[in-house]
Design a binder for these strands. Structure first.
Length: 181
DNA sequence: TGGCCGATATGCT
DNA sequence: GCATATCGGCCAA
């Protein structure tokens, strides 16, 4: 049974934690989510720093939110929280299906470099423009974990504000997570 | 309308 | 470890 919209109605922190171990499928490709970050109304959140485009975080849950950064990268989020601003950034996947195609699009040889970063996974999955605002469950298929994972949390990566909040989650010891700076 | 900044990735030292 | 590519979104003016 795939996850439904209501999975995303919970606060972003809870959704971020619960997405670890979920298998994300798009087209012929799929990967297990091994790293996420939660954003809500905090100072690092696009709800604050991109008030117009980030309004989606307050207006919706279970919507796709893709943003671009540094002119050349795009990152995938799912909005969350039915009663407040929330989104979860998908930061890394362990490739599961369509691995050859993903390797080729990324121009890498090893599985652990295919989707070990938020912008990398967008390239690996070959996500098109125009997904923002679409219903998550219409675009992706999300299968819940079959096993429990050892989940570690820590500060979010690449932000200058609210660095103290431990809102990043990842599978402890996984070689498929993004590398810390 | 211009200038600044960023939830990044990569390649070089 | 550090520079840098490259541009959308934001706000001040």
């Amino acid at each position: 049974m795939p996850l439904d919209r209501e999975f995303f109605a919970a606060p972003a922190l809870e959704v971020a934690r619960r997405l670890i171990g979920v298998t994300l499928a798009y087209g012929d490709c799929a990967g297990e989510i091994v790293e996420t970050e939660a954003y809500s109304g905090d100072e690092a959140s696009h709800f604050v720093t991109r008030r117009h485009t980030g309004a989606l975080m307050g207006d919706t849950y279970a919507s796709v939110y893709v943003y671009s950064i540094y002119g050349m990268h795009r990152c995938l989020n799912f909005t969350a929280d039915r009663s407040g601003p929330g989104a979860v950034l998908i930061r890394a996947l362990r490739p599961v299906r369509g691995i050859d195609a993903m390797r080729q699009r990324r121009g890498v040889t090893h599985d652990h470099q295919v989707a070990s970063g938020p912008a990398k996974l967008v390239v690996a999955l070959d996500l098109p423009d125009g997904l923002t605002g679409r219903d998550v469950t219409d675009v992706f298929r999300l299968e819940p974990p079959t096993e429990a994972h050892d989940i570690e949390s820590g500060p979010r990566i690449g932000i200058s504000k609210a660095r103290d909040l431990p809102w990043r989650f990842h599978v402890r010891g996984s070689p498929f997570v993004s590398r810390r700076r």
